[in-house]
Amino acid sequence: MPEKTADKVELPEATGAASEATAPEAGTPASAKARSLWSDAWHDLRRNPLFLISAVLIVLLIVMAAAPSLFTSASPRDADLAKHYLQPPNWGHFFAPDWFGYDGQGRSIYARVIYGARASILVGVGVTLAVTVLGTLVGMVAGYFGGLVDTLLSRVTDIFMGIPYLLGALVILTTFAERKVWVVILAMAFLGWTTIARVARGAVVTIKQADYVVAAKALGASTTRVLLRHILPNALAPIIVVATIALGGYIAAEATLSFLGVGLAEPTVSWGVDVSAGRQQLRNAPYVLIVPSVMVSVTVLSFLMFGDAVRNALDPKLR
């Protein structure tokens, strides 16, 4: 169909002022500064309220994960049975350990929620990093070299994709007696890299046909150079988008696994573990379950919004 949007209306970029003697074509680019595509994206992001809200929340969560003691002086493991299922007091006691009440073992729910951020963020970021590295590698090799390599890697990807995610994670994690954070990360990454691999492969297949890649080859550039200088930087945008959106999903998945009793377990402080524990006194003390659940939801939502905003900025065509 016809070209309609403003993106596509051809707007010659340079000004017509042919004043410079050295430049017969009057080469004054539209903007005075060097503007990379990344900085253009950043320019868009800064003006997106969705991005600002989610970014503030994410920064808050990261600070929480890195330095929980900034938010509470109480320890998540201090159990005072006298405070067994103690109700939250009147609203208004900000940053007090009893803000959200106490759980069955008399531990401050507020403190546990603050300290629980670390496990969730760690798993979310850890899985995302591992998945991105592995997926990008597989996707790039498959997409760039094609042929038999591609066929083999793509079939392996398909096989992994065929494994139901939660069921697979359940099976793997139940074989571990002690489930530390890194075990959960590895198990989840082992099953989760396929999406990124596919996205990366698709991007690389398109990009490797671009004239600038052909131009680099014509100059005699080595395969490594072509991959790292030309293909990777251009394939990165869709990968980053998928990865940020997936990050929220991994946090939710970790909570789910912990809830089911195969993810993180006591004594690790984690939202999933707390949600699981909260189930027991759902009627008398619903807050024990609700507070960590809300934390999971807010975190997942933040990352989803963040991913959405990043996608809009990096790829305006998807809008």
Partner: peptide, 18 residues
Amino acid sequence: KGLPPNLTRIPSGCAFNP
């Protein structure tokens, strides 16, 4: 010589003058 004008900043007077 020169280039077609940037449509966000069309030269004053006759657009072709530069």
